[in-house]
Amino acid sequence: MTAVAESYQIQTRRNRMGFWLFFLSESFLFGGLLVARYYLWGNTRPSMEDTVIGPLTIGYQIIPLAITAVLLLSSFFMNRAEVAIANDDRKTFSRSILLTTLMGLIFLLGVLVFEWGWKTVDGQLVLGRHISPTDGVFGAVLYGMTGMHALHVLSGLVLLMLVWNLGRKGHFSPEKHWGVEATAIYWHYVDLVWVFFYPAIYLIGVGMKVTGH
C-alpha cells in the first residue's frame, strides 16, 4: 500500500469518527424534540382530516405511511449508490443518486404539501390545512418536529446533487469515495430520525381533534 493511500485511510477513519460525533450532537436536537412530544402530548396525538384530491379521499394516516415508504426506499438506493462507487460501477452510482434525490424530493413535497397543507385565508396563502403552527402544543410540536426534519432532508438533497455532480466528473474511485460515504451516512441518518418521528407523530397515542383554527 502506498503512503498516499494509507494516509487517505487514516484521514477517512478520522473523518468517520468526527462525523459520528456530529450525529451525536444532532441526536440531542432531535431527542429534545421527541422528549417535547412525549411530555406535551402524552398518550395523545393530533387527529387530522383526510386528504381529498378531486373525487379521491385518502385517509390521513395513509400519506405519512406512503412518504415513510418512499424515504426507506430512498435509503436503499443511497446504499446502492455507495456500494456501486465502492465497486467501480459508476453508471449504477449515478442512477442511484438521482433516484435517491427524486425520492427525497417526493418525501419533502409530501410533508410540505400534504402533511402541512396550505389554505387561502382572505386571498393569502397560509400554513396549516389540517393543523396550524399556532394550534397549541399539537401545532407547535408537530411543526417543530417535521420542520426540523424537513430542513435536514433539504440539506441532504443539496449534498446528493453535489456528490452526483462530482461523481459525474470522475472525482470518486473504489479507494477514494469519502464524499459519497459521508453523504450516504447523512442520508441514512435523516431516515433514522424519521424511524423515531413517524410513530411518535402519527401512530402512538389516542387521536384528538384539534380545535382553534
Binding site: N87, D88, D89, R90, G170
Partner: peptide
C-alpha cells in the same frame, strides 16, 4: 474526457 460507466476494477 467523459467518465466511463465502469472502472478498470469492475
Amino acid at each position: 474526457a467523459a467518465v466511463p460507466a465502469r472502472g478498470p476494477d469492475y
